[in-house]
Amino acid sequence: MYDEQSLSHTKWDCKYHVIWKPKYRKKSIFGALLKYLGEIFRELAKQKECTVIEGHLMPDHVHIVLSIPPKYSVAQRVGFITGKSAIQSGRNFQGRKKNFVGQNFWARGYCVFTVGKDEDAVRASIQHQEKEAKRIDPLN
């Protein structure tokens, strides 16, 4: 439940529930891109000393729980993950050899919540996203 980690003079357990979406909320996350993005998010988080604890990708948004050390800001880490994943998916799935110029895969904003004592509830909520979406919209 509490996974305390430590730095040289600090004990910490900082987890954040982050939600972001593709530009214009297009349903563009599916198929091979879906599996690819999951791996990329984990790899990019690891590069920046973060850990993906739980995550779920829907066709029109992403839910992820990140463990970020307190010496880093959430905005820096989420910006890095979204920016680099957009560049890599553009190169591998949209045939672009160079970086995006004036085109974005992810929307600018994101939503972030701290995860406290209700971590199990947040993780269960993320795991049941797809089932809930089908219940609300049966045409999905």
Score class of each variant (00 low, 15 high):
residue 1 M to G: 12
residue 2 Y to K: 14
residue 2 Y to N: 12
residue 2 Y to M: 08
residue 2 Y to E: 11
residue 5 Q to M: 12
residue 6 S to D: 06
residue 6 S to N: 14
residue 9 H to R: 04
residue 10 T to S: 08
residue 10 T to P: 02
residue 11 K to N: 11
residue 12 W to Y: 10
residue 14 C to N: 08
residue 16 Y to F: 05
residue 19 I to R: 04
residue 19 I to G: 01
residue 23 K to L: 06
residue 23 K to M: 09
residue 27 K to L: 10
residue 28 S to V: 14
residue 29 I to N: 04
residue 30 F to T: 05
residue 30 F to W: 11
residue 32 A to T: 10
residue 35 K to L: 09
residue 40 I to L: 15
residue 40 I to T: 15
residue 43 E to R: 11
residue 47 Q to K: 14
residue 47 Q to F: 13
residue 48 K to H: 12
residue 50 C to K: 06
residue 52 V to E: 08
residue 53 I to G: 02
residue 58 M to I: 06
residue 60 D to P: 03
residue 61 H to M: 02
residue 64 I to R: 08
residue 66 L to E: 04
residue 68 I to R: 00
residue 70 P to V: 01
residue 70 P to D: 02
residue 70 P to C: 09
residue 72 Y to K: 13
residue 75 A to Y: 02
residue 76 Q to A: 14
residue 78 V to S: 05
residue 79 G to N: 12
residue 81 I to T: 00
residue 82 T to C: 07
residue 84 K to I: 14
residue 86 A to F: 00
residue 86 A to V: 06
residue 88 Q to T: 11
residue 89 S to L: 01
residue 90 G to C: 05
residue 90 G to E: 10
residue 91 R to V: 07
residue 99 N to T: 15
residue 100 F to M: 12
residue 102 G to K: 01
residue 104 N to H: 14
residue 105 F to K: 09
residue 105 F to E: 07
residue 107 A to M: 06
residue 108 R to V: 07
residue 109 G to Q: 07
residue 112 V to L: 01
residue 115 V to R: 04
residue 116 G to Y: 03
residue 119 E to N: 05
residue 121 A to P: 05
residue 125 S to D: 02
residue 125 S to E: 03
residue 131 K to W: 00
residue 131 K to I: 04
residue 131 K to Y: 05
residue 132 E to N: 12
residue 132 E to L: 06
residue 134 K to Y: 09
residue 135 R to G: 06
residue 137 D to W: 00
residue 137 D to H: 08
residue 138 P to W: 07
residue 139 L to M: 13
residue 139 L to W: 12
residue 140 N to C: 12
residue 140 N to Y: 15
